[in-house]
């Protein structure tokens, strides 16, 4: 008998598979799960919604929440005008500006839900938070003395005063 004559009979396995879950772990009921799934469906949507709202609030409050940390960082950076403080301040200024230009993109993933209507407030808060960060950065620049907001910054542009009268001073000869 050659090897080619051999046949594998699959039927019993197919039949077995058609049989009720003999291979399922003990206590597993396929029907029960389906029912449970069905009953949990409504509850889950509510949770999702809550989560999304929470997420949206997280995103909206993000800049504001980072503010104390940023303030501490800026405090630590010191007043001296050198490369690292400048870089830090520049980052601090640049990130919120970038965020302000991508408000829509930031909130896009959250807009899919049915929470769309209330996102306007989030956006406003998000924008305000970013403005606060920018304000902090500007304040920092100001304390570093880089803002031309004092009279001394404009001193060099004051022209020399014109003379109304002229005096002639040299010697009197005798």
């Amino acid at each position: 008998m050659s090897f080619l004559d051999c046949r594998i009979d699959y039927t019993p396995i197919i039949r077995q598979s058609k049989l009720d879950n003999q291979l399922s772990p003990p206590g597993y009921s396929s029907t029960g799960t389906a029912i449970q799934q069905h009953t949990d469906g409504e509850h889950n949507v509510e949770q999702q919604e809550q989560l999304a709202r929470k997420r949206a609030w997280d995103v909206a409050m993000g800049p504001a929440k980072a503010l104390p940390m940023n303030m501490f960082m800026m405090y630590m950076a010191g007043r001296s005008v050198s490369i690292f403080p400048i870089m830090m301040v520049a980052m601090l200024l640049w990130r919120p500006v970038k965020a302000l230009f991508s408000v829509g993109a930031t909130f896009k993933p959250l807009e899919d839900e049915r929470t769309t209507g209330s996102l306007l407030l989030h956006k406003i808060i998000f924008i305000l938070g970013n403005f606060a960060t920018i304000g902090l950065a500007i304040y920092k620049v100001h304390t570093m003395g880089l803002l031309p907001n004092t009279p001394s910054d404009w001193l060099e542009f004051i022209p020399q005063a014109q003379r109304v009268q002229y005096n002639l001073v040299s010697d009197t000869y005798v």
Binding site: G145, T150, P151, S152, D153, L155, E156, I158, Q160, A161
Partner: peptide
Amino acid sequence: VHSQGRVLIDRNV
């Protein structure tokens, strides 16, 4: 006279 004032330490003139 280029500079019309002296800059003070508090950045006033």
